[in-house]
Design a protein around this nucleic acid. Structure first.
Lengths: 257, 257
DNA sequence: AAGTGGTCTAGACCACTAT
DNA sequence: TAGTGGTCTAGACCACTTT
């Protein structure tokens, strides 16, 4: 096993106490760079926390913080009593952000939302199961078409609990105005949401609405939102053309700012 | 704006210093539970760090750590000079892990990998661009079929740099044995990878290999892996039946352990 | 026994925001 | 000016692993 060694490896960088960048951030970047440059390779043991302390002239708490950050970034593993080690690249650690979906709207401001349909319908078996109500109970069914730069890219189906005894229908409509959901301004009514993403082929209606040829692949993002009593209040799907959306990410040592 | 107030809200929970669970973790869970239970709602201001210190009898550093963890979890926002606030649910903060893909293999051990093809081919324009070599240079082309429980679920195409001057071909072959990629045992040769995921429709060959009807939706996970000199050494795609893979995640306050 | 990471303290000083 | 979050110290003690 390779081990970082002060006698063989150059130790040029040090902490600039006059910098606006805090000491912990500087040390994080120093170590990230050493990993990215191959000075520290997967499996290598980092210098012990005590060594890092006196090498970079920072307190144990600061080194601790640095190691924690590197572990959170997935760049190192820590093992109590043994040491801290550089993690090899693992596909399983890859993380995709739905943020990229949000950018589709916010980057180009020309996003139009068109309500195709909004009416009260009785819940069928599937909707009732998802919303934990009994089949036949009334729900609000909404279909929206979202366009960017004049091109339809997104189709949204949603079914909301309809409970006349609590007059939050307007609020719910507003909550689900999408902009709010993405940016978080409307989320004060919602406690949490469950999302799942799958790949589907557009059906005829969807292809027509989204102006695509058949067959066309799509991402289907299903969501259920819950209120603070943990009751589901909204179930629906975002359907996005597969040729308009792509999620990207990296594994291993990413760029050092 | 709602503000947590000790005089109006019950303050039952406190830190158990004899617990195996460290103080910071206990406080994290206390605050998470308060958010999940609706005691603290989106937009609400948390008690100041000084208040939390003397209310739970912990030092400022410990409170600081707790706040940092909650911020990392996406549950609160901090604003210097103003305070710490509960974050509303935002779709854009959702992330999903490729880990779920890994489980597809590791859960059920009956995963078989069948090499369909492995030969040296000259790089075409696209492959040359991805691998930053010149078109016509030799590459190793590998096609694999991965089956779980006898059913083919995954198809993998990969093109590797072929450089006879560095005899790492065997190593590369081993690196790309997939198991290693997912679990990280083989990642010592790779510095980093770039991944992107999109929704596609299986072409005729893919549908035949994966025993699916046409048309069938699929996830296509494209990857490029780089060595420690930042040279791309592998470009390829995992293609997975859309009806076999689903990524799930949550936004907002998740479960408290 | 020696070395490692993990937790925690009781303050200090700073930067920022609101009043 | 008062209150907030942000950084940092110089130790202490513990749990764990290796020799």
């Amino acid at each position: 096993m390779r081990t970082a060694n002060a006698s063989t490896e150059e130790q040029s960088e040090c902490i600039d106490r006059d910098s606006y960048e805090p000491a912990y951030a500087q040390l994080v970047n120093i170590l990230r760079r050493q990993i990215a440059d191959g000075m520290l390779r997967p499996g290598d043991q980092l210098p012990s926390e005590a060594q890092l302390c006196h090498r970079y002239q920072v307190s144990p708490m600061t080194v601790r913080r640095v190691i924690n950050i590197l572990a959170d970034l997935g760049m190192v593993n820590t093992a109590q009593g043994r040491g801290t080690f550089v993690r090899p690249v693992e596909l399983g650690t890859a993380i995709f952000h739905l943020q990229e979906l949000q950018n589709l709207f916010s980057d180009k401001r020309q996003t139009a939302v068109k309500i195709l349909e909004a009416r009260v319908v009785p819940a069928d078996d599937k909707a009732a199961r998802k919303l934990t109500i009994t089949p036949g109970e009334p729900t609000i069914f909404i279909r929206r078409l979202l366009s960017t730069e004049g091109e339809p890219t997104f189709y949204h189906r949603e079914q909301l609990i309809y409970d006349p005894t609590r007059p939050i229908v307007e609020a719910e409509m507003e909550v689900t105005s999408l902009q709010g959901l993405f940016s978080g301004t409307g989320g004060t009514i919602l406690k949490r949401g469950e999302l799942s993403i799958e790949a589907t082929v557009l059906n005829e209606e969807e292809a027509r609405l989204l102006h695509t040829p058949m067959p066309m692949a799509a991402f289907c993002i299903e969501h259920i939102f819950y209120d603070f009593d943990d009751r589901p209040i909204s179930w629906g799907q975002f359907i996005c053309r597969g040729d308009r959306l792509r999620f990207t990410t990296t594994v291993g040592s990413s760029e050092v700012v």
